[in-house]
Design a protein around this nucleic acid. Structure first.
Lengths: 153, 153
DNA sequence: ATAACACCTAAACCTGACTTTAGGTCAAGA
DNA sequence: TCTTGACCTAAAGTCAGGTTTAGGTGTTAT
């Protein structure tokens, strides 16, 4: 049983299409050191599976709140071999916690938005905000009150 | 039964403390037209409950993906009275959908992070990534496979 | 009365993450 | 041969969302 993984190589244009990222962005990432293993054939970048996974990780870390220079640090860790596994794991754990926290924050935001939707729905029905102003904050319907309090700390 | 809501007024410094926002940011928001009803006493800004709610809404709309200039548009709508209730409701509905979509995206990000945590945990145990490379993508443990596939589209 | 605060303005500056520009190489098809 | 298309570089430009600076006002504690 032999390894028969075919190591495909892609041009920058193909990768741009695959991930729907501008070519300029990919070149920028490269310039910033985000593809430490990227190879070239007579000047032309050849993206392999390693770089595609790097792009997925970049997107993930960016969303999780890391800056490009910190992502670069991470990619540098990856070039230092097995002695940095712990550091890398710690980094992902930290990002995981950050994202879990952000999820909670977004839930609060969502409650505010739901409350405001209800608010304007009611204002439309009433034609004005007088009733609403009388209801806020203690005489709101039970489920709306929950949204209101969650959104207002 | 009479209205006995006390309309407290706050200075910019107090509001800065309450929301943990720099004074410069509050002034910037004001300059950008985000407090259309803000009053002043001999030049000094006096923040009332209306402005505090505006700040909550600003934070909420910012997180939901709106830019400052769009938030300004919304605040302008608010000054145009009951004929804009529908526009305002539509805006919040749209933001609600955007945030719901973002929540899904974050869940995907979280799955990638969880996968990477497991990955490095395993790499630490094994001392190398050889086994892992053999497992990816089809021979992963069932629950990890799920994370992997969700994170890789 | 004088110093210490908390407030004010306009305008310049900053940062991160790209994007655009200007100019150049190289391989393939008409 | 020549021109089209996809790639390349370095450097300048852009944009949002603030922040900082420099200079000024007004009220309160010593």
């Amino acid at each position: 049983m032999e390894e028969n993984k075919i190591e495909l190589r892609y041009t920058i244009g193909q990768v741009s299409e695959m991930f729907d990222l501008p070519i300029s962005t990919l070149r920028y990432y490269d310039k910033e050191g985000l593809f430490p293993y990227l190879e070239r054939k007579s000047g032309v970048r050849k993206f392999s599976e390693r770089e595609l996974e790097a792009i997925r990780v970049i997107e993930c870390l960016k969303i999780s709140g890391l800056e490009i220079k910190d992502i670069k640090q991470f990619m540098a860790l990856c070039t230092e071999g097995s002695k940095t596994y712990k550091n890398r794991k710690a980094l992902f754990e930290k990002r995981k916690e950050a994202v879990e926290k952000e999820l909670k924050g977004l839930q609060k935001t969502l409650d505010m938005l739901k409350f405001k939707c209800w608010y304007y729905e009611t204002a439309i029905k009433d034609g004005n905000e007088d009733n609403l102003n009388r209801m806020i904050p203690d005489n709101l319907p039970k489920d709306i009150k929950k949204l209101y309090y969650n959104a207002h700390n």
